[in-house]
């Protein structure tokens, strides 16, 4: 190889190296533009005079795995003064078998009805290196406000499959990002790769009929048009269960489901 050719080769390689360092993607846009999830047909108006309700309770039968302690030593900023030791949140079962953090929603039966997305954001907070809440629901097009209340860095990594996957950094306390989903997806797992124990699940639906069970395992789906519905209950470890229910005008029906390992 001639000396001149060598110089050209080396110069080209070094230029590429410098460009690689200088360019690049940078941090992804922290706020995703509002979704184009506007319904094609006018949104359904539910008449409160005829609206029905499905209530119920989700239980767990058997012996649930004990909550395991979480080691947070990899980030001293995570420890909350005076807070009880952190434990895993996958199985939160009451003394009577009440199962918490079950996402319950209308899976089928709404027909071609469309529903406007609320402009009020749903908040997903990061506090004490935990996502709060652990399970939540949101409508397509509704803003999801992701906050960092911790004096440490988090990355918010949504492992969506139907929506766009995203991974946003929140290096400073008090930071907020707004994200909207463009299509329904049950569920979108969220994780923080900085703190491997942090995870959360977001149910994205094109209607407002969903709920997450509380500590007593109960839920309520209010404002339903009279009809026959498939109700699905989703749990992060126990999978799903479905049940059919028919409600008439102003009627309230109770649904009970029991998960087992």
């Amino acid at each position: 190889m001639s000396g001149r050719f060598s110089i050209r080769c080396l110069s080209a390689a070094m230029t590429v190296a410098l460009l690689t360092a200088a360019c690049g993607g940078g941090q992804p846009d922290s706020s995703t533009p509002a979704a184009t999830g506007a319904p094609a047909t006018p949104p359904t108006t539910i008449e409160s005079a005829t609206a029905a309700t499905v209530t119920g309770k989700i239980s767990f039968a058997g012996t649930a795995p004990a909550a395991a302690p979480i080691k947070m030593t990899s980030d001293p900023n995570c420890a909350q003064p005076g807070a009880p030791p952190a434990t895993t949140e996958a199985f939160l079962v009451g003394s009577g078998g009440e199962l918490q953090n079950v996402f319950v929603y209308v899976k089928d039966g709404l027909g071609n009805r469309t529903f406007a997305a609320p402009s009020t954001p749903v908040v997903l907070n990061q506090q004490g290196c935990h996502y709060l809440p652990h399970v939540l629901g949101i409508q397509v097009g509704q803003p999801l406000e992701i906050r960092n209340d911790d004096a440490t860095l988090h990355n918010v990594h949504a492992l969506a499959t139907q929506n766009a996957e995203f991974n946003q950094g929140q290096p400073l306390k008090g930071m907020k990002n707004i994200h909207t989903f463009t299509t329904k997806e049950v569920m979108v797992p969220f994780k923080c790769d900085v703190h491997g124990w942090m995870n959360s699940f977001v149910g994205v639906l094109d209607h407002p009929f969903f709920a997450v069970t509380g500590a007593d395992g109960s839920f309520a789906l209010k404002g339903l048009p009279p009809g026959t519905y498939t109700i699905e209950a989703w749990h992060e470890k126990l999978g799903t269960q479905t049940q059919m229910v028919t409600v008439g005008e102003k009627e309230t029906k109770d649904v009970a489901m029991t998960f087992k390992l």
């Binding site: 993607g25 940078g26 992804p28 290096p171």
Partner: peptide, 12 residues
């Protein structure tokens, strides 16, 4: 692998 979401910067 994804604990730093940006590149070539690190959290900006």
């Amino acid at each position: 692998g994804l604990s730093v979401p940006d590149w070539p910067t690190t959290y900006g």
